[in-house]
């Protein structure tokens, strides 16, 4: 029986995982080797019944990492304490070993952007993120991993390179890194930069786990859609990352236009193979 105050935590993310979504809960439930999923934190209630699929995974001792998307840690304004409290409550009830969020902002001046927007790579933005991460860390029961996003625009205010910007935030906050390989590909492709050069400059020993997702080219830009297959270039970048330092875990994100189960299984297998992890299918 579980005690009133659970201190037992699942082990950290390991191997190949997948983003748990209600639409593919049945598919995820039937992956025999699965040890790790991620769930969008804002979709999990802080009290009341959990989605049944999540409860089953917990009963199988699958690690569930809450992934926030609406905290707006990069906002100039202080992070909303109610949103931090929700993330903390979800981490607690899922016995999560860590939580994750983005280096981004999603609202400003009373308006919701509706999705993650990039920060200027300025010292002022570094200060704002670090202050908000510290506010969150003060309330969270577990460590936080920070994810750099894919951006279609850059600020004219940029002062730091991407590697320096990210490294300074990680150094000052002590946070872990959630490295999204598809975002690295997208940004490099859209800025005409070398994704390997960024991998060479990031503190890869701080990676808690990595994201991989699909995308597509529209209008001369690569869009990180999460609704298309994972391109070969992204899989190759997974291989390049693992050759430098393999992260403890890799997670496939799919957020719509769900393919037949066989195709999704093949993507998970391709990820496992690119990283040298055991297949979970």
């Amino acid at each position: 029986m579980r005690g009133r105050r659970r201190v037992r935590r699942m082990t950290g993310p390991s191997g190949v995982g997948i983003g748990w979504r209600p639409e593919i809960a049945g598919f995820v439930a039937e992956l025999p080797g699965l040890r790790f999923v991620e769930v969008v934190a804002e979709g999990v209630p802080a009290s009341g019944p959990l989605p049944p699929g999540l409860t089953q995974l917990r009963d199988r001792a699958v690690t569930v990492v809450p992934h926030g998307v609406r905290l707006s840690l990069g906002g100039a304004e202080p992070v909303d304490p109610a949103r931090v409290a929700h993330l903390a409550a979800v981490a607690q009830r899922l016995d999560a070993p860590l939580v994750s969020e983005h280096i981004a902002f999603v609202r400003a001046g009373g308006l919701e952007a509706g999705h993650l927007l990039p920060l200027p790579r300025s010292r002022e933005a570094v200060d704002a993120v670090c202050a908000n991460v510290a506010r969150a860390q003060a309330e969270l029961p577990v460590p936080i991993a920070l994810e750099p996003i894919a951006a279609l625009l850059d600020w004219p205010d940029d002062e730091l390179t991407e590697a320096d910007f990210l490294t300074e935030i990680l150094d000052r906050t002590g946070a872990l890194l959630l490295l999204d390989v598809a975002n690295v590909h997208a940004n490099a492709r859209n800025r005409g930069a070398d994704p390997l050069a960024l991998l060479d400059r990031l503190p890869l020993e701080r990676v808690a786990y990595a994201h991989v997702a699909g995308g597509a080219e529209h209008g001369g830009l690569y869009h990180d859609t999460h609704t298309d297959p994972v391109p070969t270039a992204v899989l190759e970048l997974v291989g390049a990352l693992c050759a430098r330092r393999r992260p403890p875990a890799l997670l496939l994100e799919r957020d719509g236009h769900y393919p037949p189960a066989a195709e999704l299984r093949a993507e998970l297998d391709a990820l496992a193979s690119a990283a040298g992890f055991p297949a979970v299918t």
Partner: peptide
């Protein structure tokens, strides 16, 4: 949330720039 109406802080520049960007986008 703290927001409009709070005293100016050293981050006012960033706050204004972020608000302008979101307004231009949505």
């Amino acid at each position: 949330m703290t927001g409009a109406g709070s005293a100016p802080t050293p981050r006012a520049g960033l706050a204004e720039r972020q608000a302008e960007l979101v307004a231009a986008l949505v």
